[in-house]
């Protein structure tokens, strides 16, 4: 019986495999090939070797965007996770109205990035108008505006993951710690946090990649202003692709570099936090 099925395994894999090849593998390979080409549309590309990569790396906008993105990612990964964990911790203490709070905090995550960006642009500009400036007056407004926006949007989602993690901790562990005389802080740092390490892994992964790849919010909130000083990597790639005739390939090359960077970052982070996970 089992053998009979095994013989046909390729048939069952086939539909997914075709879809995966058509919509993922082929576009991905095409993307890499195009990064070595000069082209206007994907059908009239011709090979130019490494020129695009040289241009990408000698482009100061790209390096600025890389630095800005790094700063942004560090700040937002820390803030999002700290706040999300605090919320999750508070909302697993059996506070009245827990479900209502959870729902409310989760809601921002359901709104699209572009819409969020415009809404927050209005809010922030409205506040800054009191001081006679706008969000594009100084790059630091844009930076913190984006951090606030990112927190507002992602905290709810991360909170749900942390709540699930905290609820999975066996009660006897917490009780045992209490009986052994552990204080609240000790219980938190010695029991709860180590026990939710797998949630931390996934949350760090999600916030890290989401912050690094941020596009919609950046595009809608500041569009890189003032003078590209708040433009992140994804936005810079977009601007390179559409900003100059004949630079489509350079945009593509930047995108490939971007992919490699995100890959390295995410894998390194996974490797380090995985090692800290414990079994109960």
């Amino acid at each position: 019986m089992e053998k009979a099925y095994k013989k046909y395994f390729w048939l069952f894999v086939l539909p997914t495999l075709i879809a995966f090849t058509l919509f993922f593998v082929i576009p991905f390979i095409m993307g890499i090939v195009l990064s070595f080409c000069k082209f206007t549309t994907v059908t009239n590309a011709h090979f130019v070797g490494l020129t695009n990569y040289i241009k990408a790396f000698s482009n100061k906008d790209f390096l600025n965007a890389l630095w800005f993105t790094t700063k942004f990612t560090v700040v937002s990964v820390i803030t999002v996770n700290v706040f999300a964990f605090i919320l999750a911790y508070a909302l697993t203490r059996g506070v009245k109205g827990t479900n209502l709070f959870r729902t409310t905090f989760f809601m921002p995550n359901l709104i699209g990035g572009i819409v969020l960006g415009y809404i927050w642009q209005l809010i922030i500009n409205g506040v800054l108008a009191k001081f006679g400036v706008t969000i594009t007056a100084d790059p630091k407004y844009g930076f913190w505006g984006m951090v606030v926006l990112m927190n507002w949007q992602l905290i709810g989602y991360m909170m749900i993951i942390y709540i699930a993690g905290i609820q999975n901790i066996p009660t006897e562990l917490v009780e045992a710690a209490k009986i052994d005389g552990a204080g609240k802080m000790q219980a938190l740092f010695k029991v709860t946090i180590p026990m939710v390490m797998s949630s931390i892994t996934i949350c760090l992964f999600l916030t890290l990649t989401n912050s690094f790849k941020l596009f919609d919010q950046n595009y809608a909130l500041t569009a890189g202003g003032p003078a590209k000083k708040t433009s992140m990597l994804a936005l810079d790639i977009y601007n390179t692709f559409y900003g100059r005739n004949g630079w489509e390939g350079v945009g593509q090359a930047k995108a490939v570099i971007f992919f490699i960077l995100v890959g390295i970052l995410a894998l390194t982070q996974l490797y380090f936090t995985r090692r800290k996970e414990v079994e109960s």
Binding site: Q121, N125, A129, T136
Partner: peptide, 8 residues
């Protein structure tokens, strides 16, 4: 509009 506010 004040020059400082034109960005919005």
């Amino acid at each position: 509009t004040e020059p400082s506010m034109v960005g919005s």
